[in-house]
């Protein structure tokens, strides 16, 4: 059976993630409805605006089904806004913003500044040096005991994993480097058969 990775396509950089995954031969599905979610084996939650995605997760009826799938162990990778949605605590977010509490980190929204402060920089990661693109990026301010830090910018964590859930404060889909997508795919039970 071919595995299929869903890319949450409510809003944001979903097209760039689909391109990255397709370039390594992974079948992708854009996920906007619970039916589409049911057809995928893993989920990538892209960057974009987390408050927009929160609204659309509710109105599309996707929040609870995604939470249930994550609890069942579905490999999930959130980048930037996706990381905010997966975190256990959102700082400086909207007061009504819900998150999936899937990875025990506290995340401060836009903590690296506005767009004029957005930057690219090399970071040290589990897969080697990686060129990170940080767009109005959130900051990981607390890392729980169960969370493994896979990548750092200087001293601070920017890539983390807890069980089957990964989160990055930067945008691997904008770097023309698929090593982190490959690492994510390796979390799938059928890894290697895709």
């Amino acid at each position: 059976m071919n595995s299929c990775v869903g890319v949450l396509a409510l809003q944001g950089a979903f097209a760039a993630h689909c391109e990255s995954l397709s370039s390594i031969g992974v079948k992708t599905v854009e996920v906007r409805t619970p039916e589409q979610l049911a057809s995928v084996d893993a989920l990538l939650m892209p960057g974009g605006e987390s408050s927009t995605m929160s609204q659309l997760l509710e109105s599309s009826g996707l929040f609870d089904p995604i939470a249930a799938r994550i609890a069942e162990g579905m490999p999930t990778f959130g980048t930037c806004a996706g990381m905010i949605l997966l975190s256990s605590e959102i700082l400086d977010g909207r007061s009504d913003q819900r998150s999936f509490n899937a990875i025990d980190i506290s995340v401060r929204r836009n903590a690296f500044g506005r767009q004029v402060d957005s930057f690219e920089s090399d970071i040290d990661t589990r897969v080697g040096q990686f060129h990170g693109v940080f767009i109005r990026a959130p900051r990981i301010e607390r890392v729980g005991a169960e969370v493994e830090v896979l990548g750092r910018l200087g001293d601070e964590p920017v890539l983390v994993q807890q069980g089957n859930v990964m989160a990055a404060s930067f945008h691997p889909e904008l770097s023309h480097d698929v090593r982190l997508h490959e690492y994510f795919i390796s979390l799938m039970p059928t890894a290697g058969k895709v």
Partner: peptide, 24 residues
């Protein structure tokens, strides 16, 4: 706290925000 090799205002960073607004 970005490292020495960090750069702002690159074409990739600027086009990157446009990517983030897609579907919105």
């Amino acid at each position: 706290s970005s490292s020495n090799s960090s750069s702002v205002g690159t074409l990739r960073v600027k086009r990157g925000l446009a990517e983030m607004l897609k579907g919105g």
